[in-house]
Nucleic acid binder design. Structure first.
Lengths: 233, 233
DNA sequence: TAGTGGTCTAGACCACATG
DNA sequence: ATGTGGTCTAGACCACTAG
């Protein structure tokens, strides 16, 4: 029960973590407030705040004004998911990235897509289908709709030469959105493009991207069999 | 080009975001250093630091001592993935959670699992197979191995009454690990338990959990057809 | 070696939520 | 009403690294 001076926020993170892991501070328990911890550790409250804020970000602690700081009870498994552009994903596997535009038109999307892009009935959008390859082997099939309301420039872009994935990242910075991950059987056409049997279980990623609240693009990516998304807790 | 005083870090985040979105600060560009921005905004450097650190966390900026702060070139799509315990996932859908232990034994795992758990050849581990249901319908099939080296108490726990998912979260706090997400066809037994046809495309989640660097549990979760993992960018 | 971000301090005021 | 975390300040020193 000595009180070694802890004057770096990382040291405090470690000490708090240790106290939780050792059962000293049980799940659900209230821990001392910032001022008391600062006094105990011999540092300023700012430093304690930095450490506890970090642990709250990680999901280890729950903090509320007036109520104090508690050890989270049933913490979720929290991971940060970084999805690089497709080219980087391929290159990171040490493979050569290839890109082929399979289809391009400017037409009215199906109702589900129109709703996502918040388009009125019959309104057109840019439709692109493309295949990314890794060392010549199919990697992912991309079916994308781009709202020409949100990004009129897209109609002029040469998507045969520059893939939409990267074009959008560079031309529509700072977008937000939603991602859905699921499993789906390969359809007939998809199977042919991806070089697998129809019905094969494929990893599917749906993404709706917004910029300043306005829907920009809706894309479905079907990955070739064997794809696995890996992340660290 | 007025210089309105920005004295809250969130306001600075917004202003920097605006400058990037407007193209004022292009991707890859070097932005002014903290001291200059503090002078411009009429606030202390600490406040600027807080804002820029936040944007760096989000993946918008790249910061390096001496080199300065740059707008990231091809930022990854970055999302935070929170995976609650299975019961919470079911309840969040407004359904009643059910849990059934299908199988339990203490035996030597297959080589792939033994390697993950860093067990020596022939060493035993606790093996549990269980089904979680939502309103009585199959939700996810869990196939789990627990290292009894890391968690000897697990041999005494009553996993017919308390599901391993929650038991581990409460008894082995603060674990780290890796997650793999993929798509897989349902095998014969899996199809029967999950109530679908063999070969059906299923969403699969593999997880290896460590505590203090020591492997604790390896689990494969196969979700019933239609499962979709959703996350916000 | 010099410039940049990283961190810490001691103090202050504020916003919020609980009792 | 009051205790708690949230934030801001002005200043200082440190750690890293590009040139």
């Amino acid at each position: 029960m000595t009180a070694p001076r802890l004057q770096s926020w990382t040291a405090i993170v470690e000490e708090v973590t240790r106290r939780i892991a050792s059962g000293d501070w049980a799940p659900g328990a209230l821990i001392p407030n910032e001022a008391d911890l600062a006094a105990e550790f011999g540092c300023s409250r700012t430093t304690v705040n930095r450490a506890l804020r970090d642990l709250a970000d990680k999901g280890v602690l729950d903090r509320r004004r007036k109520a104090g700081t508690r050890v989270r009870d049933l913490p979720d498994s929290r991971a940060r998911l970084d999805i690089p552009i497709v080219r980087k994903q391929v290159e990171r596997r040490g493979a050569q990235h290839g890109y082929h535009l399979l289809h391009r038109d400017h037409s009215a999307p199906p109702p589900a897509i129109a709703a996502q892009l918040e388009l009125e009935a019959g309104q057109k959008a840019l439709h692109l289908t493309s295949l990314h390859t890794a060392d010549g082997q199919p990697f992912v099939l991309e079916d994308r709709w781009i709202s020409t309301l949100a990004v009129p420039d897209a109609l002029q872009a040469d998507f045969a030469a520059c893939n939409a994935n990267e074009w959008l990242v560079q031309n529509v910075p700072l977008s937000t959105g939603e991602i859905g991950l699921s499993a789906a059987p390969a359809g007939a056409e998809e199977a042919e493009v991806l070089g697998c049997a129809p019905g094969t279980a494929l990893f599917r990623q749906d993404r709706l991207t917004r910029n300043a609240g306005m829907p920009v693009t809706a894309v479905t990516m079907l990955f070739a069999p064997g794809y696995r998304m890996r992340l660290d807790l």
